[in-house]
Structure formats: C-alpha cells, structure tokens
Design a protein around this nucleic acid. Sequence first.
DNA 1: TTGAAAGCGGTACCAG
DNA 2: CTGGTACCGCTTTCAA
Lengths: 349, 349
Amino acid sequence: MQRKATALDVAKRAGVSRSAVSLVLNGRGDGNVAKESQDRIRQAAAELNYSPNPIALSLRNQRTRVIGIVSDEVVTSPFDGNIIGGADDVARSRGFVTVVMDTELDSSRDASAVETLLDRQVDGLMYVTVGLKPLDVPQGMLRVPSVLANCIDNAPVPRLHHVIPDEVSGGREATEHLLGLGHRDIAFLAGAQTSPAAPLRVQGYRGAFDGAGLPVRADRVFLAGWDIDTGFNGAMKLLDGVSPSERPTAIMCANDRLAVGVVLAAARLGLSVPRDLSIMGYDDEFRIANTMVPALTTMALPLREMGAAAMTRLLDAVESGDPVDSAGTLETMVPCRLVVRESTGPVPA
Amino acid sequence: MQRKATALDVAKRAGVSRSAVSLVLNGRGDGNVAKESQDRIRQAAAELNYSPNPIALSLRNQRTRVIGIVSDEVVTSPFDGNIIGGADDVARSRGFVTVVMDTELDSSRDASAVETLLDRQVDGLMYVTVGLKPLDVPQGMLRVPSVLANCIDNAPVPRLHHVIPDEVSGGREATEHLLGLGHRDIAFLAGAQTSPAAPLRVQGYRGAFDGAGLPVRADRVFLAGWDIDTGFNGAMKLLDGVSPSERPTAIMCANDRLAVGVVLAAARLGLSVPRDLSIMGYDDEFRIANTMVPALTTMALPLREMGAAAMTRLLDAVESGDPVDSAGTLETMVPCRLVVRESTGPVPA
DNA sequence: TTGAAAGCGGTACCAG
DNA sequence: CTGGTACCGCTTTCAA
C-alpha cells in the first residue's frame, strides 16, 4: 500500500508552496493565489488523487466532522434501527460521518462510550434508544452540542433537546380509525407501564372516545407487556368463551407483536379477521406488519424522520456554534402515520 | 468546557520534560527516567486526569486502535445485530474501538464507506451482512487487515477470511431432532434461492435422511421466501384439505418468520401444535421464537460467536502484522445450536 | 538521566 | 500574490 499523497506532494508537483495548496483547495484561492497557479494546483491534486488527511485536519482544527451516536440497544436489538438510518442520511448529505457505539443496555457503559467519543473529538453527540424512555444523560453530553432521539432528559430540569414520536395523537388516530369503521367496543392491549409510551397512547385512545362523545370503558384497557404471548393471552381473556355480544369488536395493540398474538388467538378460536374482529398494531414493524396474514393495519412510527430531525437540529447547532435548543424549544414531536392494511374492517352487523 | 490536560501540562506540573512524560506513561520509564521523576509524573498525570489525545496519537503513530465495521443493513434491519455486538465485545476487551457504517443495501456506498474509514486510518476492517451471502469485496479492504462476517468473498480466487455459520450441520441437526421424535414425513420450507443458506440447509436436511437410511421425498422441499405470508401459504398448500395420512407430520422452516406463518395456518385449520403437527424454526430470532405461542423449537444462529471469532482473528492480525489468514485457512465455521421449546413433539400415533 | 528537536499532515498568519 | 513558519499533541531520536 503506497502512502497517500500529501499537500506537500501536490505543492511540489505544481511548483508552489504548501500554503498555496491549502488556500486553493479550501476555496480561498481567489485574491490570494494567481489564477494560473490555481489551475496547476487543482490539476496536480487531481492527478495525485489528493485528499487531505482527516486526522491531521482534526488535530489542527479541533473539529472532526464526526458525530457520535450512542445507542442503548438500537444496533443489537431488532428495533428502531431506522432512527440511525435517518440520522446518517442527513449527516452524510452534509459532509459529516457518524460513528455508532451501542452499550447493549449496560448503562454503566454510557459514560465511557461518551468519553471515548469525546476523546476522539466528535463535534456533536446523539443518544438513541429503542422505545421512548427517560434517559439519565451522561455528563459528557453537556460538553458538546447534543440531542436525544426517542428518549427524554430525565433530569429535574431537562437540558437536552429531544425528538420523539407524537404518541398521544398516534393513539388517538388509531382509535379514530376504528371508530370510523363503526366500532364502539374497542379493547386496548396497551403495552407495559415501564414505557412512557403506554400511558400516552392510552391518553390518545381516551381522547378519541371523548372527541366522539362516547364513553370509555375503563375495563377495556390492559397494561401487560409487548410480546406475542402477551397479546395471545390478552386476546384469549377477552374472547375465549365470551358470547359475541359481550366481545369487543376490535382490539388495538400497542405494538405489532401483540397484534400477532391476537391474530393467533383469533385463529385458534375460529374468528375471522377482520370480519368477526378488527385488529390494529402499532410500529409498522418491518417484515412483520406487512407480511402478517392478514397484513396488519398499524400506526407507523416515524423512525427515519425522527433520526433526520434530530440530526438536522444537531448539525445546525454544530455549524452555527449556538446551542441545540436555540429555537427556544426543547421538544420536537413527529407525527405517527396510519397505515391501513387488511386486519381492520367494518364493525360486524 | 476547559480544555483537557496535555502531556506538557503534566510535564510542567512534575517539573520534567514532555519526553519523560511520554516514556513513563508508556511503560518505558525504567532505565530512562529516574524513579523519583517517574512517581512525580504518574502523580501529576493522575491529578490532571491526563490521557493522551487519541487524534495526535493517530497522526503520530499512523495507527488508531479503531476497527471499522461496514454493514450491508445490519444496523437498520431487525436482523443479526448481535454479530456486531459480539465483535464489539472482543474489540473493547482488547482496547480497540469499533465504528460502524451501514450502507443500507446500497452497494455503491460500499466503496465510499471503506474509503472514509481508511482515510480515518482504521487499523482493520470487517464487513458484516444480514444473512449469509456472497460479497463483492470493496478494493479498499485489501489494503488493511480485513475479515468478513456472514459473507463470502465473491472473487474467483477468494482473498479474505470469512466467518460463517455451519448451515449444513444446522440443517442436519434440525432434521435429526425431528427424526428423533419419530417423524418421517418432514416438509421443509427452505427459504429462497437467492440466499446461499437455503441450499446448504437443504443439503443438511438430505444428509440427515441419508444418515438415517431413509428416503427423501423431493417434493417435500420448497424454496419460496422468508416471510410470514410465505410460511402461511406454504403450510396451507401442505395441509389444507389434505387427509391426515397424507399430511407431513412436521414442517421445518428456514427461519422463524416462516414458522410463525405455519403456526398461524395450523391454528386456522384447527390443528394443534405440536400434537398434530410439529414445527421448527431457524435463527432463534429474539422476541419471536421465544415468545411465540407455542414457543418455537429452532436452530439458533451463533451470531455473537461469529462476531467474536471474526474480531479475534482480525485483531490478532492487526497486532501481529501478519495477514488475517496466516493460519492458512480462509474459513471459520461456527456451529448452530439447537434450541428445543414447545413447537415440536413426538410424531402423532 | 534528561531535554531539545524533528516530524506526523495540515492551516493560517505574516513578512516580503 | 507568495512562501516561510508556527502550531495542533504526541513519540522518538539524539546530544548533552
């Protein structure tokens, strides 16, 4: 591997000094370097396939054009990877590189990941989590521009800007979809208390009923968990051995996996979806919601948009030198998106 | 943010020169620096919370202790993230940092990701893919020590070492599990032709039958796809309207999602799993296989082990200066692991 | 045993 | 308009 060309090589080839090379290649040639020299420099650079050494640049400029992304388990878990995808899109388009470190839910690694990144002089930091959650912000994040994606500063007085999905309106619109199909008895398997998303979606569910002037049956909302078996068991409790008139006509689920369990239970019980029972998921999980039988109607999390919004905000701050929340607001909410497929239909006659 | 302490600060505080600081802190103090000075230096370093600037180090040493990981879509897809987890474990334990770049299946980004990483002077590279596949190795990977995880150098004469799961024995052991339960008519939804994993698993399936001295019914193996609906449709074809004596007593699936579809079909048809029908998955996909109802018996991919093995091999090469395949072999196969849960049982009487 | 100096690859200031 | 030079933080060689 022959070593890469340096600015000195270019200078020699063009018969000028290193300084001239630097000026020209950084667009500050005009008014400083003769037009003719500029051409020679640019040509020499092209011939040698020259590009400046980012490490030397970093050392000199004290800025690296690198953004550090710390994730709780976004890389290693099956979820929410698109937040990073959306963030990286924006970063690349603006000439930044992202480096990702995953702590695999070991919060004792948070601080050291941040310090490692800071040591390497990242220009900014982003923390991404799987699922909406409060975050004990690592101290180091306060030393450079930083944003949170899908998590919220857990301090008494929050300091970092966060980008989160609008769970309340997500819950509301999902419910409105079912109300619009004529359903009135809608059960809600609402996930687990442990996530702040659960109560927010329930709030949206209530809001939809209120908005329609309909009463909410408190006993139709269940907080349990997030997995297939939970959905299955919850559905069995709601449906098995219950007369058709007593059954809910629709079941909303706080994620697609719960919905898979519910579909499974319906199949066991000989209920046709959506003819006898409508089922809604949440998340629009890739290769689950769209390939389920029947394909799941669901509320898509705006993962890419969240990542993009967070990164945009962060880079604006990095490049301007202002703090991330310069616009005065500490929160960006991104709306969820209703995806209608085949698991929901009109209320049975 | 007050700037970090430099070696010069430490030197001043200890009343010595920068060189002395460098020597002592790199363990080459004995024989070069007076014991007493050594102590003062170490103490000063501790007091100032000194650690060398990695960027300056990189520039000086031309080595960064950074390993670049390029992934096709491991970060953004729900799959195989644990390969990176396993790799990162090993890297951290050996004092290296990994930086991950995901190309989101855009192979035109492969080369530029590698060049970016190379520009930043990574000491080694690893390419990770979702699902076993042939890889057109980006040229740049040949310039530093590199390994492949879950993919295989697609060149006429392969150059890079790869770490892959042993799909043949995975397929064989899965089949043997079912044969051991007395099943003789075992259908295999074997994924899609597009992945090299599919034919390998089929080969294992055939091997198991051969080994047991049993004939293979060629019409029991189907190549179709990898998703829930494919599994559902495949199972319906095998089971719906077919008399019990004509039905396979077990269905093997090339991944857990197919198995979900098969379970769903069985539920629709009123078949009890595993009493009437045994179902096997493959992959042990997190939060699918273990939470399915019934929980899926499956063949776990050794993702963490693969990542760890690949990184170990890579770092050995980086630290020794030898090429990655110095042991003479270009392939490491890691065995899959049978996980018995509740979806398989004895053949029906 | 110690410190001065060169150099890694750049950028930016300043005198010519 | 140009080229010399200092400096970013560290390691390493070499002379004192």
